[in-house]
Structure formats: C-alpha cells, structure tokens
C-alpha cells in the first residue's frame, strides 16, 4: 500500500476530532525524541512497551530510562511481574497493524492479553503506525479481519480515540475505563 499525504492528513484530522493527537515523523530518532517529550510532560514514572520493532524499543528504553522513568518491553519482563507492572504503568506504547483514515481508527492484533492490556489499563496510550499501513475506508477491513481470524486466534482491537462516555445527561467525558489520552505516531519512509 502506498498512501498519499491526503490519507495521512485525513487520519490526523479525524484523530484530533476524537480528542487524540496524531504526528507524522520521519525517523526513529524523531520518535524517541517525541515520546521522551511526552514522558516528561506527563510526569510518567513507568512506561511499558509491546509489539515494537526491537531496535526502536531498545532506543526508547534507553532514552526514557535516561530521563529518570522506568521503561520495559513486556517481552523482557519476568512473567510473574507482568500483571503488577501493567496495573501500575502510566503509559502503554504499542504498534498498530492498520489504521483507518476515514474514522481515525487503529487496528491492533494482540499476541496475548498482556499486549492488549497495554492499550487498556494505563491512562495514556501511545501507538506507532507505519504510514503505508493506513487504509482509506473502514469497509476495506473485511478481508484483513477474515484473514487474521482465520489464520490465528488472536484478539483484534479496533480503537477509535480515547475512552469516552456520554452516560450522564449526554455530556461527553473522556477516560472512563480505558485511556484518557491517545497519541498516535505515524512513521514515514526510511526510519534510518
């Protein structure tokens, strides 16, 4: 898939309407810098990552640790500690398999529920998606969903903005049971 800049623009604009943020970045270095900035700004103490490219996760880990917060890839964590850390994390960072420009949605297939909980439990969710994996319309998802559910039994989450409710007098409030904030990073071109 080769997506033009209008697709990316549309995606970012939908994210903003939802109360999320979207940022188009060129290199891993930009990503590390951007996320470190968010960690400082939010005063996060514990950051957990999952399903990221190995080199990116190790660079992120190094940078975030250097600014005084703890940061782990859940693959490296002792499994008996996993649940406790997930409960405590301030920020969860995940990849995303696809995004839908039309609706501002992220599509994430999770290997297991520890990975899924990264975008459920922490109050802030940061997702990183490659620009070429943004599709235009929601209806295009059918084929991909069929394939994914046929070839594995992984859980798929389609996430559109931060957690929200309108259950009290229809007033919209963010951050009920899921993240209160969502930041999406779109990676463009050559990460080097």
């Amino acid at each position: 898939m080769n997506r033009g800049s209008d697709t990316v623009e549309r995606f970012i604009s939908e994210l903003e309407k939802l109360g999320a943020t979207g940022k188009l970045l060129k290199t891993y270095a930009d990503v590390v810098k951007h996320i470190s900035g968010l960690v400082v700004e939010k005063g996060a103490k514990l950051v957990l990552m999952g399903d990221l490219e190995r080199r990116l996760s190790s660079e992120l880990s190094k940078a975030i640790t250097s600014i005084g917060a703890s940061c782990f890839d859940i693959k490296d964590v002792d499994r008996r500690e996993l649940r406790k850390l997930l409960e405590k994390a301030d920020i969860g960072i995940t990849g995303a398999d696809l995004a839908v420009a039309e609706t501002g949605s992220l599509v994430i297939a999770s290997e297991n529920d520890a990975e899924r909980l990264l975008s459920c439990l922490p109050p802030i969710h940061i997702a990183i998606i490659s620009k070429e994996n943004i599709i235009d319309n929601f209806l295009e998802l059918a084929e991909w969903l069929r394939r994914m559910q046929n070839t594995g039994t992984r859980t798929i989450s389609i996430i559109t903005g931060p957690s929200r409710t309108a259950d009290i007098e229809l007033e919209i409030v963010m951050g009920v049971h899921g993240p209160c904030e969502q930041h999406v990073i779109i990676l463009e071109g050559d990460v080097e």
């Binding site: 649940r83 501002g104 949605s105 520890a114 559910q149 389609i158 309108a166």
Partner: peptide
C-alpha cells in the same frame, strides 16, 4: 446509535487468549 463515525472500541475474538495473572505467569482464559 450515537452519531459517532465509529465506536471507540471494537473487540474481536474467537478464543480465550493468554492473560497475565496476578503474581503468576500467563494463563489461557
């Protein structure tokens, strides 16, 4: 339903996946 272009969360599953238990490893749900 609510005039949203898309609902916030759609969860799709066709089995119980592995979940991290408190003070224990991963177990299949």
């Amino acid at each position: 339903a609510t005039g949203q272009k898309m609902a916030t969360y759609i969860t799709i599953l066709n089995s119980g996946s592995e979940t991290p238990l408190p003070n224990d490893g991963l177990a299949k749900r």
